[in-house]
Every structure is written in structure tokens, then in C-alpha cells.
Simulated scan of single mutants.
Amino acid sequence: MKAIIIDDERLARTELKHLLENFPQIEVVAEASNTTEGEQLIEEHQPDVIFLDVQMPGKTGLEWVEEYDGFMPEVIFTTAYNEFALKAFEVNALDYLLKPIELSRLSEAIYKLEKRLGFQKSQHEISELRQKNYLTAQDQIFIKDGEKCWFVRLEKVRLCESMGNYVRLFFDDQKPLVLKSLNALEERLDPKVFFRANRKHIINLNFIDKIEPWFSGGLQVTLIGKGEKIEISRRQSIRFKELLSL
């Protein structure tokens, strides 16, 4: 899939290109520092997706999308400000990424793009992802906590909870601790299955039993199994609703 990056900050373009190297199905064919340059490159390359900064000198990314009447690929907005999220989806953006962009969050956006375009990974590409230590729900992991050991499929892990420098994994009746930060664990988990609910928790989407409105625009989910109740922060609630919407 061909991609163009439109962002007035050279460092931001470089960082995004570096992150996109983790996705061999994406080819960055060009980059632009403003929407005027971007228009010309879009007409020339006919990309599948553009990564478009919201705030740029002159015409903003949102204004440009609303006014542009030429060939329009899928749009993934990138910005440091979350107040533009609602407007972005009003103009039918595929996704909205907050800077600094996290690899796991970018992976979610690429997955949406693949679904939208009907793109299927080849076995070669899947193999390359596995070589980068990307774990799927079907992978089995070895866990050792004290004298106890487990060999469990990730699909059985319903909840990951940060405990300082450790993460507590919840599966069946077990709650072992592993020496790993929640951020490090998140980078290795399949974002189509495991969702970062807040600073302390990652939940398995397949274990959600109930969703309720919560304080300050957030949500609370109840998990199947032991009935753990986990708050989804206001910021993450926007992502959660978009991820699970039709």
C-alpha cells in the first residue's frame, strides 16, 4: 500500500517513516511539508493513504480535506492535540493519531486500513512481523513467578495490570507477576485483541462482558471471568469507540 506523509515538521515526518518501517505492507512514496505540495504528490502517486498533520502553516489539514475535490485516499490524521478528534471523524478520516505516535496505536490504524482496503498479509509479511517479536493472541508464552511456571496462550489472558516495574497477568484463576513494564508489553501485543484502557491496564477485547458510561466522559468495562471492572480513560474512550464501531 502506497502512503504519503504531509507534515510541516521534518522531524515528525522522519519519526513516522521510521515507525512505518515496522509494516512492510506500507511503502512511503513521498512526503510534503504542506497541503499544496501534498495535492501535487497525491495526484502524481495516487496513494492508498495519507498521514496528514492537522495544524500546519496556512491551510490546516482539516480545512484542506473539507475543501479538496480531487482524488482522496484514506486519511489518517496526526496531531499533538486531541480536541480535533471529533472534527476529524466528521470528515470521514480513517483514524486520528496523537503525537508522539505509539507503535501499538499505529498498528491499530494500519489494521483498519487493511480492513478498509480488503488487504491481506502474505505469509512472507506475517513471517517478517514475527521476526520483529510481534505476538498474536494464538502465541504461547512462558511465565515464571517464584517457583511456579505456566505455558499459556495469550488469548487466555484477559487483563494486564501495571505494578511498578512488573505486570500482573490475569488468566483463569492465576495472577502471576512478570518483570516487564506495561509499555514494553503493549508494544509486543496484537492491538486488534489487546487494548490499552488507561495508564495501568491493558484489556483483552474478547473478554468484555459489559460496557457502561463512566465519569468525565470515560467508560467502565466488566470482564468475563472474575468480573474485574476496568475504567477506560476519557482519551482512550475515543479510540475504543472508533475501534469497535461498524
Score class of each variant (00 low, 15 high):
residue 54 V to E: 11
residue 43 E to M: 14
residue 48 D to N: 14
residue 49 V to R: 06
residue 82 N to F: 07
residue 48 D to Q: 07
residue 53 D to E: 06
residue 60 T to A: 10
residue 57 P to T: 07
residue 51 F to A: 07
residue 41 L to Y: 07
residue 46 Q to R: 15
residue 47 P to D: 11
residue 67 E to I: 05
residue 39 E to V: 14
residue 51 F to V: 08
residue 73 P to Q: 13
residue 77 F to P: 01
residue 24 P to C: 09
residue 39 E to P: 00
residue 77 F to C: 04
residue 58 G to K: 08
residue 89 F to P: 08
residue 66 E to R: 15
residue 29 V to P: 05
residue 65 V to N: 01
residue 26 I to S: 01
residue 36 T to E: 10
residue 40 Q to K: 15
residue 36 T to Q: 12
residue 26 I to M: 11
residue 41 L to E: 12
residue 89 F to T: 00
residue 41 L to R: 08
residue 34 N to T: 03
residue 53 D to L: 03
residue 58 G to L: 10
residue 76 I to K: 03
residue 70 G to P: 09
residue 36 T to C: 00
residue 68 Y to Q: 08
residue 59 K to R: 13
residue 42 I to D: 06
residue 21 E to K: 13
residue 88 A to Y: 10
residue 74 E to D: 12
residue 44 E to V: 00
residue 36 T to W: 04
residue 84 F to L: 05
residue 52 L to I: 07
residue 86 L to A: 14
residue 73 P to V: 05
residue 78 T to Q: 04
residue 37 E to P: 10
residue 71 F to D: 04
residue 23 F to K: 02
residue 71 F to C: 05
residue 53 D to K: 01
residue 83 E to V: 13
residue 70 G to W: 01
residue 26 I to E: 03
residue 55 Q to A: 06
residue 79 T to R: 04
residue 69 D to R: 15
residue 73 P to G: 10
residue 25 Q to E: 15
residue 32 A to E: 09
residue 33 S to V: 14
residue 49 V to L: 11
residue 30 A to N: 12
residue 51 F to T: 05
residue 61 G to L: 03
residue 80 A to R: 12
residue 82 N to R: 12
residue 48 D to T: 04
residue 29 V to A: 08
residue 73 P to N: 10
residue 84 F to G: 03
residue 70 G to D: 02
residue 40 Q to A: 15
residue 75 V to F: 07
residue 20 L to F: 07
residue 21 E to F: 01
residue 24 P to K: 02
residue 23 F to P: 02
residue 59 K to C: 11
residue 60 T to D: 07
residue 67 E to P: 06
residue 22 N to S: 08
residue 24 P to F: 06
residue 45 H to I: 12
residue 44 E to N: 06
residue 75 V to N: 05
residue 74 E to W: 03
residue 51 F to D: 02
residue 50 I to T: 10
residue 79 T to L: 02
residue 63 E to S: 14
residue 21 E to W: 00
residue 30 A to Q: 04
residue 41 L to C: 05
residue 67 E to G: 05
residue 60 T to S: 15
residue 26 I to H: 04
residue 40 Q to C: 10
residue 76 I to G: 06
residue 49 V to W: 11
residue 28 V to Q: 01
residue 72 M to F: 05
residue 40 Q to G: 00
residue 35 T to M: 04
residue 39 E to Q: 13
residue 77 F to L: 10
residue 41 L to A: 08
residue 38 G to L: 09
residue 79 T to I: 08
residue 57 P to I: 08
residue 88 A to K: 05
residue 84 F to R: 03
residue 86 L to N: 09
residue 52 L to D: 03
residue 83 E to H: 15
residue 60 T to R: 01
residue 52 L to F: 08
residue 88 A to N: 07
residue 36 T to K: 10
residue 34 N to F: 02
residue 53 D to Y: 06
residue 42 I to Q: 06
residue 56 M to P: 08
residue 80 A to K: 11
residue 50 I to E: 10
residue 34 N to D: 15
residue 46 Q to S: 13
residue 81 Y to L: 14
residue 63 E to W: 09
residue 54 V to H: 09
residue 55 Q to E: 14
residue 35 T to N: 10
residue 82 N to K: 13
residue 84 F to Q: 01
residue 70 G to M: 02
residue 44 E to G: 03
residue 35 T to G: 03
residue 29 V to C: 11
residue 34 N to V: 04
residue 84 F to P: 01
residue 70 G to F: 13
residue 39 E to R: 14
residue 86 L to K: 12
residue 49 V to P: 12
residue 85 A to N: 02
residue 76 I to Y: 07
